[in-house]
């Protein structure tokens, strides 16, 4: 029973973690809570449904399901990254030197705009993911793990692993960390800060897209509102781990997923969505800098 909940929690937690990374990366560089980030995840879920629907209509799903899924994922990631890139250029870049409240309001505006845009173009009712994966799976230490769950855990784990490598081992990744620590100095060593910011939004949006695809296939249903609640949960995960801290976002996401699934099983599933808020309140009261965050970060 507990182990079953751990598997469920890990599935959920992996998704929260990869959305939370997008919040935390943007915050790390711009000190902006990108409230529209959850909408990118929502767009990812819709785009996955649209593209997979297209491939089903073309007959590709019937002939080769893996190919159809991979193409769907690639297209969805590309589109979401383009949304993330454009969002930054249109809504945040012009406000780079404005008071801190302005980009925050702009973020809320983008969020409302994207929700309504999807509602108008896709309708206000739930959309169904064209492919059902069902309960097929395997036994692992007496626990049922569906293939889809295993896939979600594996994909989010791999994405986090490669992101970690990227941030720590590549020239671009190191430049991202340098920019997060001191933008002026980054410019003074020849780093193009604007392109680092763009790359940050592109990576964050790409990860959110993957989360959207996975959730759409896991639950089978999406609506234009899912970005809001997922956004708040991922934001909670980011704060829990320490906003601005990438390993923190990963840890926060996993913890939140585990709390939700065990809480739903042992306390009440009615309050499933409330656990995130309880955690958020508690962490803000006890340790606002989060588990891995530094207390009162020095910012030059």
């Amino acid at each position: 029973m507990l182990l079953q909940q751990l598997i469920n929690g890990l599935t959920l937690g992996g998704v929260y973690a990869i959305i939370a990374i997008g919040y935390t990366m943007v915050y790390g560089i711009l000190e902006l809570i990108n409230f529209a980030h959850g909408e990118i995840y929502m767009l990812g879920a819709y785009l996955a449904i649209i593209f997979l629907g297209l491939f089903t209509a073309m007959g590709l799903t019937a002939t080769s399901l893996p190919l159809a899924l991979i193409l769907t994922a690639i297209l969805t990631i590309i589109f979401c990254s383009a949304y993330g890139f454009t969002m930054e250029k249109v809504a945040y870049k012009p406000l780079r030197n404005a008071p801190r409240l302005s980009p925050l309001i702009s973020a809320i505006g983008v969020s409302i705009f994207l929700q309504n845009y999807v509602m108008l173009t896709q309708g206000a009712t739930d959309k169904v993911f064209p492919q059902r994966f069902g309960e097929a799976g395997f036994q692992f230490m007496n626990v049922n793990v569906t293939y889809l769950q295993a896939m979600i855990i594996l994909v989010s784990g791999l994405l986090m692993f490669f992101l970690h490598l990227f941030i720590h081992k590549t020239r671009m990744g190191k430049a991202m960390r340098a920019t997060a620590q001191d933008k002026t100095m980054a410019a003074l060593v020849g780093i193009n800060v604007d392109s680092i910011i763009s790359v940050t939004f592109i990576i964050g949006a790409g990860l959110a897209a993957v989360a959207g695809i996975m959730v759409a296939s896991y639950y089978g249903l999406v609506n234009y509102f899912i970005g809001y609640i997922a956004g708040i949960k991922a934001f909670t995960a980011a704060v829990l781990g320490g906003i601005g801290n990438i390993p923190g976002a990963m840890l926060g996401g996993i913890i939140l997923g585990l709390v939700e699934s065990t809480g739903a099983a042992y306390i009440s599933s009615e309050y499933k969505d409330a656990y995130a808020f309880i955690i958020l309140i508690v962490i803000l009261l006890i340790k606002p800098s989060g588990i891995l965050g530094k207390t009162t970060e020095e910012k030059v």
Binding site: K174, A175, R177, A178, Q181, D182, L188, V189, I191, V300
Partner: peptide
């Protein structure tokens, strides 16, 4: 004020100096 990147290692700081080059 030097503005060394505090959470980059010494070697990474030096590598960043070569970013443009």
């Amino acid at each position: 004020g030097r503005r060394v990147f505090p959470r980059l290692t010494v070697l990474e700081n030096i590598e960043m100096g070569a970013f443009g080059a």
